[in-house]
Amino acid sequence: MQFEELEASYGSKKVFSKITGEIVRHNVTTILGPNGSGKTTLMLMLAHLMKPTTGKIKLENDSLFYLPQRSEVYDYMTVKQLLEITHLEKAESDIKQHNQIIAKLGLTKLLNNDINSLSGGQQQRVWLAYAFLQPARILLLDEPLTYLDVKYQQVFYRMLVQEKSRGRTFLISLHDIEFARRCSEYVWFLTPEKLVTGKTDKILILENILHYLEIDSIN
């Protein structure tokens, strides 16, 4: 999946201009950047949920799913009802995998609970399960670690590795540099002027972290 010369603005306020990049298949790419740098806007554009001011996005035959930072449920809906939406036309083998994902994210006992009655962390696990259960081959996950405790951050990491080995592609936005180093093959630094991309070991160095994340020091 490639994009060229993408530009985004809200009214007269420009978010980023003329950025070009590529999501490499069967890999995890992490997008880093300070608050307001346009990570969510870029993901929405790549998911065709928002039109870029200018620029082109080339998506081949792959299907794509975007999970926002925070998702709300507006009426009574159980965890089971939400997750059932994802396997309406699935085969028996998929249902087995479906149950494994639910179990890994600790949702088995919560299936009959109203989503709005769950804690922030539990809700985030429900939405992560919803994302992993999508048939899409490319998943765009916007700050997936939000509200997750250490245990489920580790579960999420293992699921990411497993799903990648099954041929899925991920673009995730994070604020946790160490998690990004562990889970991703590629890292993007997004600034209003440019998108700096590269292999994790080459690009995720102290100098870039200080410069592109606008911090004085790591200590």
Partner: peptide
Amino acid sequence: DYFALPEL
């Protein structure tokens, strides 16, 4: 029922 979900 889908209106219980966010627009996105």
